[in-house]
């Protein structure tokens, strides 16, 4: 992350360092996020439970890259023109979706602190299952941001679809149990 930033400062990362950096951070966030989600089925198939320990750092790095992605957009692209930042977040659906995804990831990152994990107890798991929602929003944000070349976002959407399919029963169960029971 830092080396990309250093290259951007020194103008050695493509013709427009701002765009290069935004794309690099954004894509890295998406890839890390999907990688963290791939771990669960991978552990099951490979029977290597030790791999599970990677899930937390992968998720945290995804959140960090998402934060860097947003920060470069606000600071170097929109140049802290806050009125513009606000209007883009509110009026442009693809920015709105990306922003919501970042909010979700941030909440998940913060609630990964051991103390908060303990404090949340049983509620921690349903809360952290919203990572699938965040992943879906990130994919939509990517798809919506491109002008015409939908192949790359399509690929990530396919990966996410497969992941959701593999986890469908578990997710359905959480979804049902998190709804209030009214008889």
């Amino acid at each position: 992350m830092a080396s990309a930033y250093w290259s951007a400062l020194n103008d050695t990362i493509g013709g427009d360092p701002v765009e290069s950096l935004i794309h690099f951070y954004g894509l890295s966030a998406l890839r890390l996020l999907l990688l963290s989600l791939v771990l669960t089925p991978l552990v099951r198939f490979s029977r290597q439970p030790a791999l599970m320990r990677l899930r937390r750092p992968l998720g945290l790095w995804a959140a960090a890259f998402a934060t860097a992605h947003l920060a470069v957009y606000v600071v170097y692209d929109l140049q802290m023109n806050w009125a513009l930042v606000l209007s883009e977040v509110i009026e442009r659906p693809y920015i709105t979706v990306g922003f919501v995804a970042w909010l979700v990831l941030s909440v998940l990152a913060v609630t990964s602190l051991p103390r908060l994990v303990r404090a949340l107890g049983k509620r921690w798991k349903p809360l952290h299952n919203t990572v699938y929602l965040a992943a879906a929003l990130v994919c939509l944000h990517f798809l919506w941001s491109v002008k015409a070349d939908i192949v790359e976002p399509g690929l990530y959407i396919l990966i996410l679809a497969v992941l959701l399919f593999l986890r469908k029963e578990k997710l359905f169960r959480y979804f049902r149990s998190s709804k209030p029971h009214n008889g």
Binding site: L9, D11, E91, S145
Partner: peptide, 21 residues
């Protein structure tokens, strides 16, 4: 439809932080 056209980032020379909006 997906972004504002009211402003633009003028790419001139140099690295990060050298453009003006």
């Amino acid at each position: 439809p997906r972004w504002s056209q009211a402003t633009e980032r003028r790419i001139t020379r140099g690295g990060l932080g050298s453009d003006e909006r």
